[in-house]
């Protein structure tokens, strides 16, 4: 080999090494708000489904649905992480923190007759803690008045609850590649993940604020002309108002939703996030179970 040829080869090798180093650096930079799980939840233990309670006992448990208040549910953490959503094999028992005491049941099909979406946010052996759609306490009921409640005295009623269930209760995983971040102070909604975008949105008025410092999930979506949403589906989240039992009246549990509004800006809502046309279309395209975090 001549010196000229050798220099060329060396240059090529150095360039390749530099490229590889660059790629390594890029790969090592942490993505915003997405943290690696200590265990890939997409792979569930292949355990046979074992009967937990008799059908009668299961039916006797309160159903953890959007309009229920179940004091024995656990408050959810401020932040939560999930990369997979699931369905239930069948109506399933929800347990307290001791993973022994049944506290509620989660129906395999929701109020629409569609498969219920379940989002695990913690695991421990064969157990998973999942976000649940029911309330733990009404905002009008002071903390500590219900001995069954796990709230500490003085705390706001949780906007999001959780409970434990057996991992073998779940099936049909759906990978979650995006997350919704709402900033109440900035009055924005952002999609984080693939195709990140941000839109200005309307949030709760001072008297009926949108709960902050909470993480829930997209629970269901539906069109409802009675709510003025005949064209663009309401995106029901698992979150509830922390300021009032029913900030918009009714009996459905102070539900926090994302819905289209032609004039989607300002602190004007009863707690919901009002979004423009493009935003509702983007959110509507996300799989149910997608996490939504509402920050101050």
């Amino acid at each position: 080999m001549t010196h000229r040829r050798g220099a060329t080869v060396l240059a090529i090798l150095l360039a390749a090494a530099a490229a590889l180093s660059l790629l390594h650096v890029l790969a090592a930079r942490p993505g915003p708000m997405i943290r690696a799980q200590s265990r890939p939840l997409a792979v569930l233990p292949e355990l046979p489904v074992r009967p937990e309670l008799s059908a009668a006992h299961l039916a006797a448990l309160p159903e953890a649905r959007y309009d229920a208040v179940i004091a024995t549910l656990l408050p959810a953490a401020v932040s939560a992480h999930a990369d997979t959503a699931y369905r239930l094999r069948e109506d399933t028992v929800l347990y307290a923190a001791d993973r022994t005491t049944p506290v509620a049941r989660l129906a395999a099909r929701n109020f629409l007759g569609e498969p219920s979406v379940v989002v695990p946010v913690e695991h421990s052996g064969d157990w998973l803690r999942v976000l649940t759609p029911a309330r733990q306490r009404l905002p009008s009921h002071p903390a500590g008045t219900d001995p069954a409640s796990t709230n500490s005295a003085g705390a706001l009623a949780p906007a999001q609850t959780s409970a434990w269930l057996r991992a073998d209760s779940l099936s049909s995983p759906t990978i979650l590649v995006n997350r919704i971040i709402v900033s109440v102070s900035a009055q924005t909604l952002s999609l984080i993940g693939i195709g990140s975008r941000t839109w200005p949105v309307g949030v709760g008025a001072p008297g009926t604020p949108t709960p902050i410092g909470v993480t829930g999930y997209l629970e269901a979506r539906y069109r409802d002309a009675a709510q003025g949403q005949a064209e663009h589906p309401v995106q029901l989240t698992s979150l509830h108002s922390t300021a009032a039992d029913e900030p918009f009246g009714g009996n459905d549990g102070g539900l926090i939703g994302i819905h289209f509004q032609a004039s989607a800006s300002g602190a004007v809502s009863h707690g919901c996030i009002r979004v423009p046309l493009e935003a509702i279309a983007a959110v509507n395209a996300l799989p149910l179970g997608t996490l939504i975090t509402i920050e101050e």
């Binding site: 109020f111 629409l112 009926t208 539906y222 709510q227 309401v234 029901l236 918009f248 539900l255 809502s269």
Partner: peptide
């Protein structure tokens, strides 16, 4: 009749 949850709006 199916009751659709009414969000806070």
């Amino acid at each position: 009749p199916l009751h659709l949850p009414v969000v806070s709006g």
